[in-house]
Simulated scan of single mutants.
Amino acid sequence: MRRWHATVLGLGLALIAASAQAAGPALGDGPPWWVWPLGLFVACFLMGIVAVPAGIGGGTLFVPIVGSFFPFHLDFVRGAGLLVALASALSAGPTLLRGGLGSLRLALPLAVLASASSIGGALLGLAMPAHVVQTLLGAVVLGIVVLMAVSKKSEFPQVDRPDALAQALALNGVFIDGASRRIVHWQVHRTLPGLLTFLAIGVLAGMFGIGAGWANVPALNLLMGAPLKVSAGTSGLVLSLVDSSAAWVYINKGAVLPMIAVPSVVGMMLGARIGARLLDVLKGSVIRRMVIGVLLFAGLRALLKGTGVWL
């Protein structure tokens, strides 16, 4: 068993070293190549801790931060960003499902539409120049900051009566709130507008590689009326399906480097396990303020880098 583990570790290191040579022009004459994978691991571990309780997905933090402060081409960062968001969602998924915070029944119809549109978004993003995508990414991230700052998330929205489509799909459930220890029964409404919204969210997820969890939570909570914690938990399940579809486009185009993806995915998965446990006990407002501050700085950096003001 130990010999098998050593073989896998050796292959992983060989892949990372080979991809470091492929990324050589971007790295320049700065620090040795191993500094960047180590930095990615630490940064993604911290991102994973805050991303799951915030329900935004690891890619929402990963792409603007790594794309602005690490010496990698944005196409490679977006490809890794989808794998990072996928890893954090898959790592947190079992915990969310066991606690009733993630509803697979609610996630599936939304994820089917978003997955299909994310493929088109990925093809569109790879066809655009890097500086254009960087500028648009900065604008989108700043829009996310505004949305998160002004939206008044209701922890337990009141849905008096579900619509016919929600009843047909049985989009309801129950969970025990870890903070108050109360049993919460929930149901949703405005199902058709919600499905159309997730169709548009999928395009953004594939184009920017950011997972679009930032849009999933407001759509589930404010539009469809799911409780805030159920919205955050279900967002992770949706991400696991949507990002897996868009990621194949980047893999097929050769836009995934092991040097970037491997340490990022490992760090994000470890951090997401901690974040999934924090979701049940932490106040969402604490994590939300932290994420808003980080995204504001990263969005400004991406916008200025894309426009050539701050390279």
Rank of each mutant, 00 (worst) to 15 (best):
L192M: 10
S180A: 05
T307K: 14
L83H: 04
R277M: 11
I16A: 10
V146S: 01
S235G: 10
P263L: 02
I49L: 08
V309H: 12
R277N: 09
R98G: 10
P94W: 05
N252M: 10
W214V: 15
V217R: 03
A43M: 08
L241P: 01
A122I: 06
R289D: 15
A246W: 04
P193S: 06
G55L: 00
W186T: 03
V286P: 04
L74P: 00
A14V: 05
L169Q: 07
S180F: 04
I49V: 14
R2I: 12
A168W: 06
P31D: 04
L169N: 02
L270D: 07
Q158C: 04
T95P: 01
S244D: 06
G143M: 13
S118K: 01
V294W: 05
A116N: 00
S91L: 07
N252W: 13
G236Q: 09
L192S: 08
D280E: 15
A276M: 07
D75W: 01
R301Y: 15
I65D: 14
G138C: 02
P37Y: 08
V291T: 05
R105M: 00
L311T: 13
G67V: 13
G55S: 10
V150Y: 02
N221G: 08
P37H: 01
L165T: 06
T197V: 08
V238A: 12
A130P: 08
N172F: 11
A107N: 00
L257P: 02
M1G: 11
L96K: 02
L11W: 14
A226C: 03
S244C: 10
L123D: 07
L13R: 08
G225L: 08
L9Q: 13
G194D: 01
P218W: 01
L104E: 04
L257Q: 14
S285Q: 13
G213Q: 03
A6V: 08
A23Y: 07
P109F: 06
L46F: 14
F156D: 03
